[in-house]
């Protein structure tokens, strides 16, 4: 299935409605669009801002590789991955994944697969800026590694659920 892949890395906030419209505009063959939006949370009021560092060039390339893997594995018609970098405050959107397919199962699976691999493979790093003036790099979670490796073990049938 031909898949329209759109990947972007930018400091500017993204327009979720515009990204969705770009997927569905002029098409009548799409049956499901699943979107995931990752937001900057305030960590119970402790956090003033997050600073997202990225590896320019590789960040885009890696998101493209993840998208291509997803498109090869599931019947997905369109896949958009947008990730921001720079400083963002609690409530601000950080990442958007939108997957379109004829039926919902593939769209759900693709959105989850992309996020699991993005967490462990896309070269972005979060630094916390606390309200108390403290700063610190966010540590990677073992649970994220487990989530990504689960897709390697799962067959296409299992993963499509």
């Amino acid at each position: 299935m031909a898949c329209r892949i759109h990947v972007a890395v930018s400091a500017a906030p993204f327009d979720q409605a515009a990204e969705l419209a770009a997927i569905t505009a002029g098409r009548t063959d799409i049956g499901a669009v699943v979107t995931f939006t990752g937001l900057c949370r305030d960590e119970d009021g402790r956090l003033a801002a997050l600073e997202l560092e990225h590896y320019p060039g590789m960040a885009e390339a890696e998101l493209g590789r993840i998208a291509a893997q997803a498109a090869e594995r599931w019947p997905v018609q369109a896949l958009t991955i947008v990730h921001r970098h720079g400083r963002m405050e609690p409530g601000a959107p950080i990442v958007l994944v939108a997957a379109a397919s004829p039926h919902r199962h593939a769209a759900f699976a693709v959105a989850e697969f992309v996020m699991d691999f993005l967490k462990t493979h896309a070269p972005f790093w979060k630094k916390e800026h606390g309200r108390a003036g403290d700063t610190g790099w966010v540590a990677a979670k073992d649970a994220d590694d487990d989530a990504a490796s689960r897709w390697r073990e799962a067959g296409v049938e299992d993963a499509g659920r």
Binding site: G38, L52, H54, Y55, G57, M58, A61, E62, H83, I94, V95, M115, L118, K119, T120, H121, A122, P123, F124, W125, K126, W137, V138, A139, A140
Partner: peptide, 26 residues
């Protein structure tokens, strides 16, 4: 050269080698 590599991989011919901590995006 902007592609993930294991520690046992040869570096010969690479123009750019990046070192970084485990990633925490998303």
């Amino acid at each position: 050269d902007q592609t993930h590599a294991d520690h046992d991989m040869p570096i010969g011919g690479s123009r750019e080698i990046a070192l970084f901590p485990p990633m925490t995006g998303g």
